[in-house]
Nucleic acid binder design. Structure first.
Lengths: 283, 283
DNA sequence: TGTTTTATGAACGATTTCTTTCGATAGGTG
DNA sequence: CACCTATCGAAAGAAATCGTTCATAAAACA
C-alpha cells in the first residue's frame, strides 16, 4: 500500500467516525504506531485532521469552520443567551423555520428534543435534527453554499413560496434603521421568501450587529415581529426598534436555563431537582 | 450550578465540537477534573458520549447509528470494492446524482475531492461534499427521513423533474428479474424521478441483494445502463442482467488486507527480520 | 549498478492522562 | 441536633500516550 492511499484511507476513517483512536487506526491500516503518528502529523499540517491525545478528530469539514475553533468568548456568550431567550417564546407543536447562521444554530441546538416541525435551509441545523425522531424535519433544497452550508437559489425560494410556518427565526449580518442586511445576494432572496412564509418573524442578532450595514438589504424593520438581542444594545437602538413596532426581547447573560431535560441519570433526587427552575413569568 | 445543568452543558459542548478535550471542559465549565471525569462516565453510561483518552466524543447522533459501529466485514468490503469500481466510470466534470444508502455513501466518499457537480437527496452524502469547494453541491429538499437521512416527498420529486444529470448512481434493497425493489414507498417515487432525470443510470448493489424483493418495485431492469456488483454474483443472475441489456461491471478486491493473510505475513516477515537483525551486515 | 532519498518500524525516556482513594462540604431527614 | 447521602475537590500511584532517535528497507535517481 502506498503512503498516499494509506493517508486517504486514514482521513476517510477519521472523517466517518468523527474521532478515531490511534490504536484503531493502527489495527485497521495494518501499520505501526509510528507511521500512524507521522501520517496524522501530515494530515494535521494539511488541515484535514486535528491530533488529540489518543487519536485524531476530523477537522476538514464544516464543523471546524463553524464551531470547533475559538470564537470571541463575549460574542459566544451573547449568542447563547440570545438563543436561550429565543427558545422561550417558541412553543411545542409549532412549525419553525430556521435560517442559517451561528446564532440560529445555537437556537437550533436548544430546540433539539422539542416536539416541533422544523424547516431549514441550513445543513448544519438539519444535521442536528436529522437523527431525532421527536421533531419532523423539512429541508429546503437548492445549491449548497460551500462556506456556510446553507441552501440557496431559486429552488429553495420556490419551495418556500408554498410553505407556511408559524415562526421564522432569522439571522442578520447587520441592522440599521433601514432594516436587516445580509452579505449574500442569493441568501437575501431566500430570506425574503422566508419572511413571506412566516406567520411570526423572530430576528436574532447580538448587539454588535447594530449600526453596520452589509451587502444587501433584506427587509425593513417593520417586517419583524420580535427581535432578540443581548443586554449590550444601546438605548438609541432600542428606541428605533420599538418605534418600528418590533417587540424587543433582551437576553440576560447569567441566567442560562437549559430547557432540554435528559432522562433520569441518577434516579434518586431528580424529581426534586427539576423544580429548581424558578422564573416568575409575568403574563 | 447543579449537576444536571452542568451535564447538559457538557453534552452540548461535546455534541457541537464532536470531540471535546477534558481540559477544555474543565476550563469552560469551571469545575475540577474529577468532576468532569465523573460526568463523562455518567454520560457514557447513558449513551450520550463516549470517553476517550484526553476527552470525549459525541455518540448520540446519526454518526453512531449509521457508521461508527461495526458493519459486516464481508459486506463492507464488497461495498467498498463496488464503490471503487463505480468511481472508475465516472469522469471529472460530470453531473452526478447520488442516491441514499450505504453503498452510494461509499461511492460518495471516493468522489470527494473530484471536480464534479453533485446532486443528492442524502444528508450524509451532502455532508461529505458540503465543505469541499472542488465540487458543486445541489441538495434535493423535502421531508427528511429520520432513520436514513434522505429527502423524500413531492418537493424532492418536483425538483428532480427539472434537473438533468449525466449520471445517476442508484442503490436498491433488492433485485430480481422484475427489476429494482426498495423498502420505502416515498423513496421509490423519488428514485423513479431520479431515473427520469438521468442520462445514464448506474445501479450499485452487492450480490446479496439479488433474488430478494422488497416492498415496492422501482423500475425494470431495462432502465439500467450499468450495474456494479461484487464477484459473488451467480452466473444465472449475470445472464438475466445481460439479457436485459445492462452492462455488468464486476468489482474485484485488489487490496484486501484480510486478517488471516495479514497475520501470516507478519509472522513470516518478523521471522526473517529477526534473522537479518541478528546477523549484522559488515560494512 | 551504485547512490541518495524517502518511508517504515522499534525502543526509550518524558509527559500526560486515568483510576482509585480519601477528606470536606451542602442539603435533606428523623 | 445528629445523622446520612450525594457531590465535589485533591493527591498519588498506575497506565497510556507522545516525541525523539536510530537502524533497516524500499524506492527514486543518476
Amino acid at each position: 500500500m502506498q503512503t498516499h492511499d494509506r493517508r486517504t484511507k486514514m482521513i476517510d476513517l477519521v472523517r466517518i467516525r468523527g474521532f478515531a483512536p490511534l490504536e484503531e487506526l493502527v489495527r485497521e491500516l495494518g501499520v505501526s504506531e509510528s507511521t500512524v503518528r507521522r501520517d496524522l502529523d501530515a494530515l494535521q499540517r494539511q488541515g484535514a485532521a486535528k491530533r488529540t491525545h489518543g487519536g485524531a478528530v476530523y477537522s476538514g469539514g464544516l464543523s471546524t469552520a463553524t464551531d470547533s475553533n475559538e470564537r470571541q468568548p463575549a460574542n459566544w456568550a451573547a449568542k447563547r443567551a440570545i438563543a436561550a431567550r429565543t427558545v422561550e417564546v417558541i412553543a411545542d407543536g409549532e412549525t419553525v423555520l430556521l435560517d442559517g447562521g451561528t446564532t440560529t444554530y445555537e437556537v437550533a441546538r436548544l430546540l433539539v428534543g422539542r416536539s416541533l416541525q422544523v424547516v431549514t435551509n441550513s445543513l448544519p441545523v438539519a444535521n442536528l435534527f436529522a437523527s431525532q425522531s421527536r421533531s419532523d424535519l423539512v429541508l429546503l433544497g437548492g445549491y449548497v453554499s460551500p462556506r456556510t452550508g446553507v441552501c440557496l437559489g431559486p429552488y429553495a425560494n420556490e419551495l418556500l413560496g408554498r410553505l407556511h410556518v408559524t415562526t421564522t427565526v432569522l439571522s442578520a449580518a447587520g441592522i440599521t434603521a433601514d432594516g436587516l442586511f445580509n452579505a449574500h445576494l442569493l441568501l437575501a432572496e431566500t430570506e425574503q421568501a422566508m419572511l413571506r412564509a412566516a406567520g411570526r418573524v423572530i430576528v436574532v442578532a447580538d448587539s454588535s450587529k447594530f449600526g453596520s450595514k452589509s451587502l444587501t438589504l433584506v427587509s425593513g424593520l417593520d417586517a419583524i415581529d420580535q427581535l432578540v438581542c443581548d443586554a449590550g444594545l444601546l438605548d438609541s437602538w432600542r428606541e428605533i426598534v420599538l418605534a418600528a413596532g418590533v417587540e424587543l426581547l433582551i437576553a440576560t447573560l447569567p441566567d442560562s436555563p437549559a430547557p432540554s431535560s435528559l432522562a433520569s441519570d441518577t434516579d434518586a433526587a431528580s424529581a426534586k431537582k427539576t423544580n429548581s427552575r424558578q422564573r416568575p413569568r409575568p403574563v
